[in-house]
Amino acid sequence: MIDQLRQTCRKLLEEGAVKVVIGYGQDKPSMMPHPVFITKPEECDRLVWNDLCFANLAAYITRKEIKALGKPAVIVKGCDERALVVLEQESQFTRDGIYVIGVACTSLPASGVGNPRAAKCASCAVRTPRYADVTIGEAAVGSSAVGSSSCSTADAEFAQLDEFMKKTPAERFAYWKAELSRCVKCYACREVCPMCYCNRCIVDKNRPTAIDTSATIKGNLAWHIARAFHQAGRCVGCDECTRACPAGINLRLLNQSLAKSVERAFAYKAGMDKETPPVIGSYSLEDKENFIQ
């Protein structure tokens, strides 16, 4: 599979179809696989593929340093590709301006503590990318809802959230107070996120200041509400924010709460279908609610 991947990339660069391949490399065995930018065909042997390839490379598509390199080919997993779908819907790139190399998740990451992919992979419904120009590998059999025999994919996906929502509001508030008190505002959650492509984030705006920049509990709560809600109906659940957080804050839970409400209220799942209008930029006369008097 890796040979096929390297060969595909080599050919693209040789033919001049793309100027750069955004993929995964691993400079030494002790390192986690990390993003690499291959511009010469002979460097394609640097590419690696294994189930530690966490980073969502779609995040690079909108960056000016990367755009300056010329037309990219980007390697995406099925979950990462959902981010590309949203970015395309939001006109952040034109589809013929990039080449998408899909890789199917052939093996399932070991679940358990310390594996940040386990949570999202267990309920993954997109092990094979759907819009790629070329797809390499075949997804593992019995893909969806691994590890859960009775519940459907959707239920498994939100199991952690549903469990959390059994707590009382006061308990939930106390939980977040403790979690968010650890935030130092390094903004790793924002920078790794493919959807956070604003030139100037609202938290960096100071005329006027909407959100305190201090990493106090007040400023942190306001920041995390803003971060999460700006992803409403856009977050594809790649969990990169949660993986990147040095303080181990469970941002996944906030993203899921929005994903679930979007799914339940508007039957919408971000990045699944290019043709469905984005939930936040559209409306329906039939939208139901039960809270407006």
Binding site: L161, K167, G233, K260, S261
Partner: peptide, 15 residues
């Protein structure tokens, strides 16, 4: 209406 439907869920999750 859409926005508040989603926002209320987020606030509810936050307690």
């Amino acid at each position: 209406r859409r926005r508040w439907t989603m926002f209320r869920e987020l606030l509810d999750t936050l307690g």
